[in-house]
Write a protein that binds this DNA or RNA. Sequence first.
DNA 1: TGTTAGCACTCACAAGGGTTGAGTGCTAAC
DNA 2: GTTAGCACTCAACCCTTGTGAGTGCTAACA
Lengths: 350, 350
Amino acid sequence: MDLNDRKFKILEAIITDYIKTAEPIGSRTIAKKYDLGVSSATIRNDMSDLEELGLIVQPHTSAGRIPSDRGYRLYVDKMMQSQELSPEVSELLHNVIENNIGQIDYLMQQTAKALAALTNYTIVVTEPKSPKLNIKHVQLVPIDDSSVVAVIVTENKAVKNYVIRVTDVPGLETLNSISNAMNAAIKRYSLQDMESIAAVMLQTFPESRELTTKFLKTIISAVRQNDNVQYYTSGVNNILGFPEFSDVGKAQNIFRALEEKDILITLFDRNGEHNNDVHIVIGGENNTKELQDCSIVRADYNFGNDSYGSIGVIGPTRMNYGQTVSLLNAIIKNLDSVIKNLSKDDNNGG
Amino acid sequence: MDLNDRKFKILEAIITDYIKTAEPIGSRTIAKKYDLGVSSATIRNDMSDLEELGLIVQPHTSAGRIPSDRGYRLYVDKMMQSQELSPEVSELLHNVIENNIGQIDYLMQQTAKALAALTNYTIVVTEPKSPKLNIKHVQLVPIDDSSVVAVIVTENKAVKNYVIRVTDVPGLETLNSISNAMNAAIKRYSLQDMESIAAVMLQTFPESRELTTKFLKTIISAVRQNDNVQYYTSGVNNILGFPEFSDVGKAQNIFRALEEKDILITLFDRNGEHNNDVHIVIGGENNTKELQDCSIVRADYNFGNDSYGSIGVIGPTRMNYGQTVSLLNAIIKNLDSVIKNLSKDDNNGG
DNA sequence: TGTTAGCACTCACAAGGGTTGAGTGCTAAC
DNA sequence: GTTAGCACTCAACCCTTGTGAGTGCTAACA
């Protein structure tokens, strides 16, 4: 069975209508609302064909049709048109990014918040990571008699703290010397060459074996950093606004998934890898059971220097895919240009 | 009208039953279940009196009675008995605290998580603050050509990062010197005496006027720190498990309140002040509209050195107050003893 | 061969009516 | 002060019925 132009139009009508209203659409409605030049009976025949192809389904015998996951898939792949953003929205996004570019955690939070407000869906943003994350600077700072904090600044300008507990904390001068030596050693040797670094440190600070060892381990694990991906969510309660989740059980499923770090990580942490396209997962295509009534639209953003993070939008399968994709594209483009400007400044300055 | 012993018992029966079942309780049920030695008719008369006093209400004519906010208040103030915790629960709480005491953010997160699991309510934990927060150590760490991060370690062992943007970032040695000088200046002068510190810094580092000024401002605002109270929530989706919130609209209200930082801050941020008692706010007693179907139980915890934070439990007014209060008491006591042990070690060590 | 009008059929949903049962308030008697 | 008895109320449930949106099928038409 082939899909002629009219059938495409009917499918599109069903999908766009259903996205707006969440109500099944019948043949008569389409005949009246969309000027296809044929009667409802003809549309009925076409709809029957579309159903046979698995693109639309009937919730029950005497109801209209709603799109199936496969229907949405076809729509998203072949028919969807990207939407032009209004100048206000474009400016808003640009401002959010530019104003917070200096502090990555605020940037993530504010971007998530803005996007949640614009889409009415739920937003998840993960921190940028690089597959070969480089350390820019490390520094030990004393906390008390048995702990210091290792401050690690990465190439992508993220600042992280890791508390290190040791039996004996040396004085401030020694801490500074160790920090300096560690910075130098990291520059001289690659981080892969852990032994060389450890050897140098041990030779220079034989008294502080415990601290230097733990310090180096902390840095290494910060680089691997698979243990602790930061992410932010916003608009979680938007879920409850959709009629498809007015069943508390379904909503609870989704909330559970959003509270489970592991689930979100598998969905959104690309481990520094990236993909230039906006990626869409529809309903049952999703491997996570709790989210099989949802669609997820994800875009990977570049945060300079090979470091990438993701922005994900979670909503009902009846999602406004066009708008969502446009918004995500706008965000990653803005991020890109703001970052490029920044690094240009850096190069000029240094 | 006075409340004789039997009426107290009837009220207690209604409250404890309603906490368990969320169903209105009738006179016959009480007569059968609780051995009061009188008939249901007598209980009916007493219930009528209790209703007149505003302690219980009838959802509709032919239903049993449920407690009113005033009823819960009387129960909580006069009748409630604190519950003994099982050894397993006590140990669990103790372990959570002891294992995470070194890293305050983990501690807050893990405590919230454990309490959410134990109570099935929603937990909010705010970071400890001190009305006269002392700075233990500050350190500047370079990020790039136009920004450095000020790492601030406070007396309560919290580590915070603040990004400072400056037109010109001096070299690492100068950054270290500035950091050292700032540490010394803070120790010498009190932080109140901002002018003296600024003067010293300017004199010693005339080239880095912008940086030292912003650095000092950052430290001051970190001390004031009213701008950005950290808090953690856990068990937010537990809300949906309660029949009183199966109405999506009500649940949404609560979620909105929990996503609004400002609301949580006014509820839980005591601004470093504290109160030794566990504090209970029941239903309509709450000033926050969105939470008037909820009760909030809050305990302030001491984190050493005059710094205090809060742990709050949010649940339906039909909350198990006894258990909740016991759990909160256990947590703040555990925190107290673990902290005291730590500072003992500190004094021995240094 | 594609399109259409007509018609019988299906089925969720809403409205109406009857029944049930838990619970009450009142009264008169103990 | 307590109790038994009784009339009354009302949510909840079930059953029935009607309605309307929507379908599939068929026969006729271009």
